[in-house]
């Protein structure tokens, strides 16, 4: 199981305290993870790293709305598999809930 964290660096739509708290819990967890500055930016660039993430088996993604994440990967030419991907929404859910799901 891989973990991907999106920092949504270039906009202020994800609550800063939620992002910070999730990142801190990840850092303290002893769990391996990939953290990207901004999934939208990577999608616009069709970054090759997205393919590695999409094709790499079961993944948990802490980012924003699942519909947005799904179509951002698709727009990059690397659609996410229909199974084995769990998108957690830091715009809506609490840091505690997100971290619990990520590290379960």
């Amino acid at each position: 199981m891989k973990i991907l964290y999106c920092n949504c660096t270039y906009a202020k739509v994800v609550p800063a305290d939620v992002k910070k708290d999730v990142l801190r819990r990840l850092c303290d967890s002893g769990q391996a993870f990939d953290a990207v500055a901004d999934l939208c930016d990577m999608s616009a660039r069709k970054d090759a790293a997205l393919r590695k993430i999409a094709e790499g088996g079961d993944t948990k993604i802490a980012a924003c709305y699942p519909r947005a994440v799904k179509w951002l990967f698709h727009a990059a030419g690397t659609p996410l598999p229909s199974e084995g991907v769990d998108v957690l929404n830091m715009r809506e859910d609490s840091a505690e809930d997100i971290a619990k799901e990520l590290l379960a």
Binding site: A35, A48, I53, G57
Partner: peptide
């Protein structure tokens, strides 16, 4: 980690025996 992300870098924290996205060139 947070400083690098806030400045637009992508960061991987690998741990022995756990998966991260492989190198992509």
């Amino acid at each position: 980690l947070s400083t690098l992300l806030d400045n637009g870098f992508e960061v991987t924290r690998p741990m022995a025996g756990q998966d991260v996205a492989p190198a992509d060139g």
